[in-house]
Nucleic acid binder design. Structure first.
Lengths: 232, 232
DNA sequence: TGATATAAGATCGCATACAATAATAGAATT
DNA sequence: AATTCTATTATTGTATGCGATCTTATATCA
């Protein structure tokens, strides 16, 4: 039984997929970045075929755009798409919360606590902080053991990083870690409705920090001019 | 500008994807059916490459299973997956209802009414009836104009047909058409909570008709034996 | 000089070829 | 006859090649 050269498990196409996905989420490949099959394959040591397969998968996940005859690029979701995405996230994460509330095992609680601690520790590093914040949500989803739910939450969280990259404020640490802590407390206590409300508020804050500021800044700009013109 | 030979739009791979998807949903390709790349390609007049691409997409949608080195097959979701799927569907379709309630345009109402009429008309034909029932839900989702929501509802509705094929009762016309009618009425009237409740009940019925009967049938079988043995 | 046309290069769409793995059938052994 | 081993065949995994399409640079004309 000859050992495979070097395969992180599950076929080399999946490896390419994971590599690209990671690069996109970490914003090493920013929204809009061109993704030529040749160069990627060359860089990763695989043929265009496998890159293509990975790109198809990524496009299905909404992380890359596949423009016919014009090549693939990292997706640049519109503001409307961003809004819609967070609405959908809210519906699904409410289900997550409802499923988990009062049903967390000791082990799960420890895992989540440890993760939150990790978030607090990594507060300084911008890149890691973003990733960890997202992982908290996927971790919760994971614990529901609901395959569809897990898949969709994973996808939406991944795409959220694109939204934040495009429209998020530079300095905002996307998720207030304390909100994660509070949410966990409610989940442990089995206060389902309070937990759901917290999750809603939590996602709303993220949305507000990312999507609304654009509108606000317009208003701010106008306010400045209004003042200059003596218009209240 | 030479015209393309015959392409229903958007690349031939997508055409293969649509063809297979349709065949799966119509249950022409039942759950578990093997999907060899070259026979499909031969039949559809394309190379394995394109078939492969379509299969990858379908696997991402949860309609086919991609067993490494062992070929693709139409997915055979477990009962648990079925349960989870309908739970997730419920969360998303609740959002659909909330979004639409009281906001349907005259045109949309007409479209939906016409569709329901179509469902009533096709009540006899088993295959068409299944498809139309699903399309009612995707039609509703479409009207939200929420891209993520649309995609996920489409996916889940498609997969639902697999669940029903596997675990559904032979004669049950999956969706009671009257429930669609009632739901539409509530949506028009803007009675959001009632509409949501109706949708929940509607999906619950489907679940019950599909998932629970398996347990019931076991009981039925046991009942038969019980009778034969003079028990109960 | 600026705009348009045209040719060169890069990149994609798709088919095909070959290697690797699994499935199958047949022979040999017990 | 049943079972294991082996050879054959079918099917998948991946790379590569060629024609088509897009992109760009260069040249031509107003």
């Amino acid at each position: 039984m000859a050992k495979k050269v070097s395969d992180a498990g599950g076929g080399r196409s999946q490896a390419v997929h994971r590599a690209l996905k990671r690069a996109i989420i970490d914003q090493a490949l920013p929204p809009g970045a061109k993704l030529p099959e040749d160069s990627i394959g060359e860089r990763l040591g695989v043929s265009r075929t496998l890159v293509r397969e990975a790109l198809v998968r990524l496009s299905q996940e909404g992380l890359v755009e596949l423009r016919p005859n014009k090549g693939a690029a990292v997706a640049r979701p519109s503001l409307e798409e961003g809004r819609d995405l967070f609405l959908t996230r809210m519906a699904l994460e409410r289900l997550v919360v409802e499923t988990l509330s009062g049903n967390l095992t000791r082990e799960q609680i420890d895992t989540l606590s440890a993760h939150i601690a990790g978030e607090e520790a990594a507060r300084a590093e911008h890149a890691a902080s973003i990733r960890l914040a997202g992982e908290f949500h996927t971790l919760l989803a994971q614990m529901t053991n609901n395959a569809s739910l897990i898949r969709y939450v994973n996808e939406l969280v991944a795409r959220s990083s694109l939204i934040l990259a495009l429209y998020g404020r530079p300095h905002s640490s996307e998720c207030a870690v304390s909100e994660h802590r509070d949410l966990l407390d409610k989940l442990i206590a089995g206060k389902t409705e309070e937990a759901a409300a917290l999750m809603a508020h939590h996602l709303d804050s993220i949305t507000a920090r990312a999507l609304l500021p654009t509108e606000n800044s317009i208003k701010d700009v106008l306010a400045t001019y209004a003042l200059a013109e003596g218009l209240a």
